[in-house]
Design a protein around this nucleic acid. Structure first.
Lengths: 244, 244
DNA sequence: TCGGGCAATTGATCTAGGTCAAATCGTTTT
DNA sequence: AAAACGATTTGACCTAGATCAATTGCCCGA
């Protein structure tokens, strides 16, 4: 835990939470920021801890997850450069509802809750910025609930990959942002199942080799999100005789 | 859509979003409130609509849900008396991420977004109240993601029922707050599956008859949330005999 | 009281994913 | 380079829950 470098400050000041704030406000907020370097697996806070700060990821990946009463892990979100988290809880001084830990080497900026609260008195815009960013988190979770309760694993994987593709159609090559075990968790699947889904996707021109993915037809991938069904093809005899 | 009665105002002023605000602030906020009476199925807004207001439920039940690309419905939340929703989106002027419609006859208070924003300029505390309440919504969704991605249907039903029981142990009689189809949706199950889960629960002393539920041992119900396994019909013999 | 209509249960399958276990493969350590 | 490790894949299985279909029960209007 050290003082932030100018680079850190520059990175932090450009993130979404702060859009809408003027430079002076941002600077004031960041005045009390500190930087934390994390190794994979190291955690920032655990679910149930009193919320004492909120965070901004500078580099690397940070995983937010919960441990269920039965001991399983449910991944809520995996964040990277430019994303912030725990703004709202820090603000209201509750308890973190989840655990945050580094999925890779990571560098995060930490802003103490008490400081944010002090700042708000003089600059109400800060509160508005926090609401905006919390609203986005809400939206993301809403989408996650939708995915989990009404989409198949294949659809979730397709949506995830499609989200990584820069273009809407044509072909592209992307690389998986973090390891497959974590991707599986992020999508509510077991690693084995993720692996099998990748295998299935090969038949629609999605080729996963280690962490490199070649999508030969992005539009087709996207269409899976809504429809799911993959028609058998390629391998000689699809004994299923798939209909039109 | 009419002006709120004194009763409405009284009900609205006691809700969670407003705790932390002083009476004058609450009154100012409510100055522009209107009341809407809904019949079952009628909707307040649809996902994608521009967010123009936020809402407080006075009576009845309101369902928040999304329609997936594939056309299925994913229930996000079912709210009742004293609960508010859409604060954050209204505040930042985005689009509603979900549809809200009445599950029963319902009466809700609507507060226009522009008015909230005006109020905030003079009373920053309002922004803080909004963050607090949004933070709770976040927390709830986090729990939902956890449930969906790491709990069995039986565990979710047990947790739901346990949440309705006023006492932590002993026995109690409760009544289901809304129809079973909606409960099923709320728990990410099909009605048929919910029905079967109820049947299973009968073997641990949970008796569901129409919308009346008799729980003979609340503690046992709660224990299911973490463990799931139901041992065959030993009704009153609460011994933890290890199954083979 | 009768019958339509819908919520709810129940039975009979089907299947996506989970579980368990073994085989690969790429890295890292010694 | 050999050994060791972890991450990924694959195969064989099994279970929770979905699906489809048939009843049953209940409320409501004529």
């Amino acid at each position: 835990m050290t003082a932030p470098t100018p680079d850190d400050l520059r990175a932090a000041s450009q993130i979404v939470v702060f859009s809408g704030l003027n430079p002076r406000e941002v600077q004031t907020l960041l005045a009390q920021a500190t930087v934390i370097d994390l190794e994979p697996g190291q955690s920032l806070f655990r679910q149930g801890d009193a919320a004492a700060a909120f965070f901004i990821v500078i580099t690397g990946w940070v995983k937010l997850y919960r441990i269920t009463p039965a001991g399983d892990e449910a991944v809520l979100h995996v964040l990277t450069k430019g994303e912030s988290f725990a703004e709202a809880v820090a603000f209201v001084g509750g308890r973190y509802p989840a655990t945050a830990s580094a999925a890779t080497d990571a560098r995060v900026v930490m802003i103490p809750a008490h400081h944010v609260i002090n700042c708000v008195r003089e600059m109400p815009d800060i509160a508005i910025a926090m609401i905006a960013s919390t609203s986005q988190h809400l939206h993301r979770l809403v989408q996650r609930v939708e995915q989990l309760s009404a989409q198949s694993g294949l659809q979730r994987v397709a949506e995830f990959l499609a989200g990584l593709c820069p273009n809407m159609d044509g072909s592209c090559t992307i690389s998986l942002p973090y390891d497959k075990t974590l991707i599986a968790g992020r999508l509510g699947l077991k690693p084995e199942s993720l692996s099998r889904v990748f295998a299935k996707l090969r038949s629609v021109g999605v080729d996963v080799r280690a962490s490199d993915v070649v999508v030969s037809e992005v539009a087709q991938l996207r269409s899976l999100v809504a429809s799911d069904r993959i028609r058998a093809r390629g391998s000689s005899n699809g004994r299923h005789g798939v209909p039109c």
